[in-house]
Design a protein around this nucleic acid. Structure first.
Lengths: 215, 215
DNA sequence: TATTACCGATAGACAGTCGGTCGGTAAAAA
DNA sequence: TTTTTACCGACCGACTGTCTATCGGTAATA
């Protein structure tokens, strides 16, 4: 009944289990015993690898954020793609969970996981906004946008997207949602000082297919 | 050792105690025992008046939201005051805690109280935005603003204010904060289609005194 | 090669705390 | 008196985090 593994492997096992459990039942709703059983380890083992239950959550968030920011950076660096498309993709990567093909975000937007949610959002706000702001500056050089506050603009956009495009949207009809998105695009254009309608191509994302699959 | 009071009085005693404790130590950090001791009642009494610990939080939030929204509505109704000033005051009433002279909000913005924070923000977003949107429409009629999406504009503004002007700002220098606010005002002007500089009077609030004391 | 000493990883019993319940009781109202 | 309202505090199960003991591999030593 004694299975020894390398520390990192165990750590990841625990994180994977916790990820799934927190997703299903929330942080508070998941007991450490749940995690123990799922991984098949004893109490001591868990607390050998993590100093507390919250420590597990923090590690989970860290892991998630790294993936998310890496994805965003990668998108931003693809210089062959037009700036506005890159911006769109980078923003999309926040709500849908990046190219990795995981569905972590879904779970996080539940009243239960408020703290996790908050921690992630802070990290996103501080991590993604600079990336986006750089893209905006690129757009400004190209004459696409015109604003003295690229950073603060994106901060606003991301904060809004975080607050509203999470869970709250679910209980809207398709039509209402469409209006919401139209208004969003319109407002972003104004914020960026973009030509009216120049970002409307974004709408395709929501009406038509799910992007183009390339990466 | 047995003190009998009217239900509502006890309820409020409990809420007041919980308010203070949650503020200091957060929701999870506060045990029901803490509350019992502070109020000076027995376990059973607490659960006679509230069905759970979270029920206490919800009641607390409800109480807070009512005050906040009432304050906002009152401000908005003061037709003798120019629209843009009313808007400003209504927004201010969100972060500073309205005219009532209480300091609830201060506490709420702590990593601990994530859930409470979240619940309040949702309520604010759904409650205050319509009030503000009406003010914007009034401003549109007067030719101050020009936007097809008054509601969504304010939604964005409030969401941003909630996300960024909470706690995050604390660790900034005065100068950085000023830039932040300048950018904010600038962006709001753009969103509302207001004349450039027409909302800059807001800056006085942050540089100069704390408003005019009238109500 | 055989022995010793050490260390990372694991186990599980255990203590302490916490949220919530329950049966009973005092006081007020009817 | 009877009924209702408010209150009490012992009690329960569940949970998190701690502590000590131990297993198995590995490197130094004989």
């Amino acid at each position: 009944m004694r299975i020894v593994k390398e520390a990192e492997e165990r750590r990841n096992e625990i994180l994977d289990a916790a990820d799934e459990l927190f997703s299903q039942k929330g942080f508070d709703g998941t007991s450490t015993n749940d995690i123990l059983e799922k991984v098949g380890i004893a109490r001591g083992t868990l607390y050998y690898h993590f100093k507390s239950k919250e420590d597990i959550m923090d590690a989970l968030i860290e892991r998630y954020n790294v993936r998310l920011l890496d994805a965003a950076r990668e998108i931003a660096a693809e210089k062959s793609v037009p700036v506005n498309v890159r911006i769109l993709r980078a923003v999309m990567a926040l709500n849908m969970s990046g190219g990795s093909g995981e569905e972590i975000m879904e779970h996080i937007h539940k009243p239960q996981n408020a703290l996790m949610h908050q921690k992630i959002q802070r990290a996103i706000l501080n991590g993604v906004v600079p990336i986006l702001a750089d893209l905006i500056r690129e757009g400004i050089e190209q004459g696409l946008f015109k604003t003295p506050f690229p950073y603060e603009c994106m901060e606003m956009v991301v904060a809004y997207a975080n607050a509203v495009f999470d869970g709250d949207m679910v209980e809207l009809t398709d039509e209402e949602r469409l209006t919401r998105i139209q208004a969003f695009v319109f407002n972003v254009e104004r914020l960026l000082g973009a030509e009216s309608g120049s970002l409307m191509f974004v709408m395709q994302m929501f009406t038509g297919g799910e992007g183009d699959g390339h990466e």
